[in-house]
Design a protein around this nucleic acid. Structure first.
Length: 525
RNA sequence: GCGGAAGUAGCUCAAUUGGUAGAGCUCCAGCCUUCCAAGCUGGAGGUUGCGGGUUCGAGACCCGUCUUCCGCUCCA
């Protein structure tokens, strides 16, 4: 791939990371990749809009992912589920519980804790006391009966009573959504901050990570609906529809791209963590027991996909999860070296049959697959690949942005995007704005525009025009000069090498097809 | 949510102790035209994030608020 052929030295690497990151952000805005949302009203925290070039780049990334997943795999199909889903979906998935955390801050140490965790820890300490009593007693008596001791010893009973009381109070408080009571429990238990040692607490606040709204036509008690916090559930609830109507046989996958919404407490770092974001994920349904093999397969396949972009192998690494979520039996992230360090880009999770089993239970519908080879039915296991499109966008943009020193002490700003992802595939320049050159340039554009996004520029010197295209990542600049009028050739200037070659006008279409289409990337996989 | 820093033209930044908001680049129109940003002429674009206050007078000082970056925190 031509965009990896020249290891351009990069002045940006000498910058402090946060300064380079600021360059990325201002470059994004200056050239129309990303704007703060509703900027004329001072913006909206952690919400961004994609501008005219950003929309193209994002669309190209999505298309490359979609083709690599769906078009290149006969056993993977794509769907597009709605953002709104039945409220029970989120009870089954666990999001209603898991995304509702009561939080409390210690005013002295400035540390934030989950109130429920603080209380659980306090309860655990009381349980420790019981255990110590039991140990002490066990040493004193022969033929010691622990159960008997626990049910009779006055001190133990008192501890146990306190535990039960606290648990009961906490349960009632949470069910009643009574956050003042939760705080009171923390005060009554005399819980101190492990850092500051103080009991100077703020009020308990509830952070619900799901956005909610209401819908009119369902029953009264269930009229709150959520904006989906992940896209995966749309696949799980549809998996049998797809399997049956598409006559899919295990193993098979369902892919989807779409918006998801999370009301993050702190959403920051530009488009890395937004409240509204786009996921691209594929759920792969497999026979139970074969999931680890597929997990390894997709781990490799997905890293390979990232590497095919040619942004640098050293910018990616795996991060295996030690602590697994309750639904997973294996999980890892593919991390990317962002300007602010290695951060998660994509997750590959072996989700077992947790989700489908949950939906079976909550819906009362069987979600089993009949395996004709085994002649039996089972709930498939699921291996998930899930990548954040906005993060991918940021990884591509920040890796591609280079300040390249040139001979003579000059430098140029160049966006070394993979050609297949670049907003414009080529720019067409008449060398001068007369002598019939603009007319020829326009006729060339008319033949190429059906298949390629093209830019046209006749303003300023051609060198200046090259630099403008460098800054937005256009891989090729096609210049029409006086010789073109005589022999129907043009010069094609390469963004990376800055070298020119003469090409017949009739060859341009084939040249751009080979160099700039998604196909050129897919062939490298 | 806490702490720190910042917010002036599309971008990067000026503006002396409080005294008429400027420059470079960009952009637009035109001239010139020579294949790597550098020539000439003209032009557009700002209630100094927003709202109050102090003052004869605020970009600057005070209060509030919004947004952004950094560090905590959080992160299926």
């Amino acid at each position: 791939m031509s965009n990896q052929s020249t290891p351009a030295t990069n002045k940006n690497t000498n910058l402090k990371p946060e300064d380079f990151f600021k360059n990325v952000i201002s470059h994004s805005k200056e050239y129309g990749f990303i704007f703060p949302s509703s900027e004329i009203y001072d913006g909206l925290s952690a919400v961004y809009d994609y501008g005219q070039l950003g929309a193209e780049l994002k669309k190209n990334i999505r298309e490359y992912w979609w083709k690599a997943m769906v078009q290149m795999h006969e056993n993977i199909v794509g769907i597009d589920a709605a953002i709104f889903m039945h409220p029970t979906t989120w009870k089954a998935s666990g999001h209603v519980d898991a995304f509702n955390d009561p939080l409390i801050d210690n005013k002295d140490s400035k540390k934030r804790y989950r109130a429920d965790v603080l209380i659980e820890e306090a309860v655990a300490k009381i349980e420790d006391k019981i255990n110590k009593e039991v140990e002490k007693a066990a040493k004193r008596f022969e033929n010691f009966d622990a159960a008997m001791f626990k049910s009779t010893n006055a001190r133990v009973l008192e501890y146990q009573k306190k535990i039960d009381e606290v648990n009961e109070r906490f349960k009632n408080a949470m069910n009643a959504n009574n956050l003042e009571e939760v705080k009171q429990i923390i005060i009554d238990l005399e819980i101190v901050c492990p850092i500051s040692g103080s009991r100077n607490w703020t009020d308990v606040r509830q952070f619900n990570l799901m956005f909610s709204t209401s819908i009119g036509s369902v029953s009264d008690e269930a009229n709150t609906i959520y904006l989906r916090p992940e896209t995966a559930q749309g696949i799980f609830v549809n998996y049998l529809n797809v399997q049956k109507t598409g006559r899919m046989k295990i193993p098979f996958g369902i892919a989807q791209t779409g918006k998801a919404f999370r009301n993050e407490i702190v959403a920051r770092q530009f488009i890395f963590r937004m409240r509204e974001f786009e996921q691209m994920e594929m759920q792969f349904f497999v026979k139970p027991g074969t999931e680890m093999g597929w997990y390894e397969y997709w781990k490799k396949a997905r890293l390979n996909w990232h590497l095919s972009l040619g942004l640098g192998a050293d910018k990616y690494r795996y991060h295996d999860h030690i602590k697994l979520a309750h639904y997973a039996n294996a999980a890892c992230d593919i991390e990317h070296h962002f300007p602010f360090g290695f951060k998660e880009l994509e997750g590959i999770h072996s989700r077992t049959d947790f989700d489908l089993k949950q939906h079976q239970e909550y819906s009362g519908k069987k979600l089993q697959y009949f395996d004709p080879e085994l002649n039996e039915s089972y709930v498939p296991y699921v291996v998930e690949t899930s990548v954040g499109l906005d993060r991918l966008f940021l990884s591509v943009l920040s890796s591609a942005l280079i300040e390249e020193p040139l001979e003579g002490g000059d430098s140029r700003t160049v966006l070394n995007l993979p050609a297949a992802l670049a907003p414009y595939k080529a720019a067409i320049f008449p060398l001068v704005k007369k002598d019939g050159l603009p007319e020829l340039a326009e006729s060339i554009m008319k033949t190429l525009k059906f298949d390629f996004m093209l830019a046209y520029d006749e303003k300023d010197t051609v060198g200046k025009r090259y630099r403008r295209q460098d800054a937005i990542g256009t891989p090729y600049c096609i210049t029409i000069d006086h010789q073109s009028l005589e022999d129907n050739t043009v010069t094609v200037r390469d963004r990376v090498t800055m070298k020119q070659e003469r090409i017949a006008i009739s060859q341009l279409h084939q040249f751009l097809t080979e160099k700039t289409t998604i196909q050129s990337l897919l062939k490298g996989l």
